[in-house]
């Protein structure tokens, strides 16, 4: 049985798809067979971030409508054979998803994969609801900013009440907080909520803090999950997240402002 992870937030533009790409690639790098599913029907982005947009033949909606088999629609990643991508349809909308259809596809994926990462669309409507409905774990992606925190809180409420686990009275979905686009300098200036502020509002287990980084934009533009950029702070932070998720004890990094040495101060890093 695969473990189903939903990457969700409520708010758009906080880094759900970047995180889905990084987490799925990270799990694959650790040797786990991983599928990543784009639930953002109509606004597909995951294939771009994963750099496989030119290899899309069939999509998630085709599989749900039984116009294609799962194997026809799954795209194998060229960099890591453990990783497969199920792209979203660009021409349909989220009403094309049905609960039965999604369940059938996830069950079929469960037979061959260890982890299924569901990239949720923004909002709390059908697409987002179905992305989280079958989940075992939830990574709630939040920016250190009040409206994002509020939306995450709303999403946590839905995870606790509107999921299959909640409806069947099973153990609740495991919820993890992932703080993205974090900038210690701006926190120090009082322009951004600190990790402690967000933790106080959401009262959630912190899976990691991803610093605001140029590497993320570069990675998106080149279609490479940022976790593959081992030199970058964001890439390292995502690798820490994977190790923490898999049970290792890894201290948090990138929360404090980095002290610049004399060299850095002279030449502005």
């Amino acid at each position: 049985m695969a473990r189903i992870i939903v990457v969700t937030s409520g708010k758009g533009g906080v880094g759900k798809t970047t995180t889905s790409a990084a987490i799925s690639m990270g799990l694959a790098l650790q040797g786990h067979r991983t599928a990543v599913v784009d639930f953002d029907i109509g606004l597909r982005n995951l294939d771009l971030i994963m750099g496989c947009e030119r290899r899309v033949v069939y999509d998630f909606v085709n599989v749900i409508n039984q116009e294609a088999t799962l194997n026809q629609a799954l795209i194998r990643d060229k960099r890591n054979e453990n990783l497969h991508i199920l792209p979203a349809s660009q021409t349909r909308d989220k009403d094309a998803l049905t609960k039965e259809g999604v369940e059938r596809v996830l069950n079929e994926l469960s037979e061959t994969f260890d982890y299924i990462v569901c990239d949720s669309p923004a909002g709390i409507e059908r697409g987002a609801h179905l992305a989280m409905y079958f989940a075992d774990d939830a990574v709630v992606v939040t920016n250190p900013e009040v409206s994002s925190v509020r939306d995450s809180d709303r999403m946590l409420g839905l995870l606790a009440s509107k999921s299959r686990r909640a409806e069947l009275g099973q153990d609740p979905i495991k919820e993890y907080l992932l703080l993205t686009r974090y900038s210690p300098q701006r926190v120090k200036l009082g322009e951004m909520l600190s990790v402690e502020d967000v933790q106080e509002i959401l009262a959630l287990h912190l899976l990691g803090v991803i610093p605001e980084s140029k590497a993320v934009l570069n990675a998106s533009n080149s279609g490479t999950p940022v976790i593959l950029d081992e030199k970058s702070d964001a890439g390292q932070a995502y690798m820490d997240v994977i190790r923490r998720y898999l049970g290792e004890h890894v201290p948090h990094r990138f929360i404090e402002q980095e002290r610049k040495g004399l060299f850095g101060r002279l030449f502005g890093s």
């Binding site: 509020r150 939306d151 809180d153 709303r154 946590l156 409420g157 839905l158 606790a160 009440s161």
Partner: peptide, 8 residues
């Protein structure tokens, strides 16, 4: 005994 979230 659990947090009451926004919207609940």
């Amino acid at each position: 005994d659990h947090p009451v979230r926004s919207g609940q």
